[in-house]
């Protein structure tokens, strides 16, 4: 692992159109190859933070750099180029349920194709082979021709990981990837993400609710509360008590402060 940052947040704030504060003066530097876990209550801004990296959300002020280049003002083709290099995993898998697994996995590759070629489904032999390998990597080779909605939730999420892998990403963003899964499949999905990180040195950022999983898989944990970065420690220094504090609702914290 090198210390050269792949993602840098500089004084990043985001206010939504209706006036709600999304992010508040975030400063953060993420080195290449890190497995970063973001914890915090729902609505703390975890999803927003994640989506500012691939510009699915725009920020109000500040600057974000990916690989040393500011991404805030990217447009059109350049923006799509950025997104192509960043894979994303979603809580609800976001597969096209009625399409085959093969087509879903291949759809991760569209950023490398012209509109008309991809529209006609003219994927190269290499990419079709790559899709098979990506699927085998997550242990679902035999599902290549199945329809996505025939798969269990855990299997669907692993197909989504294969789809992200098709992009040849430098970074993978996983937004609550296990929130809709049962404990058993949770393990395999987290393992798949960890393998992406270890074998291919892909920087992985995961939003999680589970503190114990965060401690098992992360290199570093950051905590958000009401859009503010309130916690940032490497895994060696993380304690159970710190994490509990992040999950305290603010109202209770303030009350206890008043009482103290």
């Amino acid at each position: 692992m090198t210390d050269e940052p792949i993602i840098e947040f500089k004084h990043v704030s985001k206010t939504y159109q209706n006036g709600t504060l999304g992010l508040k003066d975030i400063n953060l530097s993420i080195p290449k190859g890190q497995f970063l876990v973001v914890v915090g209550l729902s609505g703390a801004g975890k999803s927003t933070l994640m989506r500012t990296i691939n510009r699915m959300h725009d920020i109000s002020t500040g600057d974000i750099r990916v690989d040393g280049e500011s991404i805030v003002h990217l447009k059109g083709k350049e923006l799509r180029g950025l997104r192509r290099s960043i894979g994303m995993i979603f809580q609800n898998f976001n597969l096209v349920k009625r399409s085959s697994v093969q087509r879903n996995v291949l759809s991760g590759r569209v950023g490398y194709y012209s509109t008309w070629k991809s529209t006609l489904g003219l994927f190269s032999k290499d990419d079709k082979q790559k899709a098979i390998e990506a699927l085998q990597r997550v242990g679902l080779g035999e599902k290549l021709y199945s329809r996505a909605d025939e798969l269990s939730g855990g299997q669907q999420q692993r197909v989504a990981i294969a789809r992200a892998f098709m992009q040849d990403p430098k970074i993978v963003l996983a937004d609550e990837p296990i929130a809709s899964l049962d404990p058993l499949t949770t393990e395999s999905v987290m393992d798949d993400l960890k393998r992406l990180n270890e074998e291919f040195h892909i920087t992985v950022i995961v939003n999680l609710h589970s503190v114990s999983l965060a401690q098992r898989f992360a290199d570093r944990i950051i905590g958000l509360r009401d859009g503010e970065l309130v916690y940032d420690e490497p895994i060696s220094k993380v304690t159970e008590k710190d994490l509990e504090a992040i999950y305290q609702p603010v109202s209770i914290v303030k009350k206890s402060e008043v009482q103290a």
């Binding site: 098979i132 699927l135 085998q136 242990g139 679902l140 080779g141 035999e142 290549l144 021709y145």
Partner: peptide, 11 residues
């Protein structure tokens, strides 16, 4: 388990 299935001609 992890092998790509073969499809029939019709499929």
């Amino acid at each position: 388990m992890n092998i790509v299935p073969t499809r029939t001609f019709a499929q």
